[in-house]
Nucleic acid binder design. Structure first.
Lengths: 189, 189
DNA sequence: AACTTTAACTAACGCTTGTTAGTTAAAGAA
DNA sequence: TTCTTTAACTAACAAGCGTTAGTTAAAGTT
């Protein structure tokens, strides 16, 4: 494993600050202080504040897109695909706690890349919807409102980054299983 | 119904802008422009930007607290209480689409009232947890991880404000029922 | 008619913002 | 050793920030 470059370190620290206060409330001086240098020195490594946000968000969004493509092309039934989606979110979220906050809360502050991000997001949701509808047609999934299903599941998965850090010594594959059970089977006895 | 005061109008418009860009990214000049006046004129009606945020968030947080107290003291089983909680969120969220965004995303920018807000939030979650645990003890609810259950349900309900405006001509009691079915019974056939 | 209140205005203040220019000392390459 | 690159620095800029002071014209009150 290569050691982190100074640029990567800045982006990582920025993501942490963005999670705590949001992109707009974090100043380059805040970020510099956290790095132990002056604000102007940051520009030896990054080109702009905006570019930090781009890097954080687009990398993550593309990771989700890649994951979805892999799941789509797996020859499994829909319930299994949903389980794979849950695992994808648990994996990416647990490895990118800070970045996920920017993805969820600060995407509207993207400029050049905003449209591209929104396209990735819409495509992802369409793929998700298609899996649910196939599941309903194949009689694997109850014939209720697929929009509400998608909203409920996807919202839960998108917020994992808030919740995972609160639970210490959490077992990630156990978390996936519990989520799968609760989201798919419900909580009623 | 009394007509809206100018102060209430400012707070309402502010909440709308806060939803779109977040508290920190909205300037008093943005808000003034949306109101059709100059920034300094806002101060004839409100005392500070911070105070606008206080008003938006605390009013909503207390509305949830009151609702939870009512549900707790209703003599019903736990599954019914959960349904009442879902209805509470659908009602408050649909009536306060903009304010809910501030509550969810900008509470960290509260200053004097931040501790108070966090107490209300923690108490609410504790009450929710207690209902789930009673349900498990009473054999109404499946004996799985109550933390994951609460996270999943509460996250979904807290994000309703994002999703309700996207669906036109939505029937709110139908939405409550569908949510209840999906969150409680799951989606598996 | 004389007054007070309301809600807007212009002008400005002190501070913070993201960013640039130019400099410097150390490390690495020739 | 000499040259180049790297990564920090100080100083500063223009723009924008929340907010205050003081003014004004209209509306409401006595």
């Amino acid at each position: 494993m290569k050691p982190e470059t100074r640029q990567q370190e800045i982006i990582r620290v920025a993501a942490k600050l963005f999670k705590e206060k949001g992109y707009s409330a974090v100043t380059m001086r805040d970020l510099a202080k956290e790095m132990g240098i002056k604000a102007s020195s940051l520009y030896n490594h990054i080109s702009s504040k905006q570019d930090i946000l781009n890097t954080i968000i687009i990398a993550l969004a593309e990771e989700f897109t890649d994951g979805m493509r892999r799941i789509q092309s797996s020859n499994t039934n829909c319930i299994t695909k949903l389980k794979q989606i849950i695992e994808l979110h648990v994996k990416i979220s647990s490895q990118n706690i800070y970045g996920m906050a920017s993805l969820n809360n600060d995407w509207m502050h993207l400029q050049d890349q905003r449209d591209y991000y929104q396209k990735l997001r819409i495509d992802y949701e369409n793929d998700f919807r298609a899996i649910l509808k196939q599941g309903i047609d194949a009689n694997e999934i109850v014939n209720s409102n697929p929009e509400v299903m998608m909203f409920s599941i996807l919202t839960t998965l998108r917020s994992l980054y808030v919740w995972i850090p609160k639970k210490e010594d959490i077992n990630l594959s156990e978390l996936s299983n519990t989520l799968n059970q609760i989201l798919i089977e419900g909580i009623n006895k």
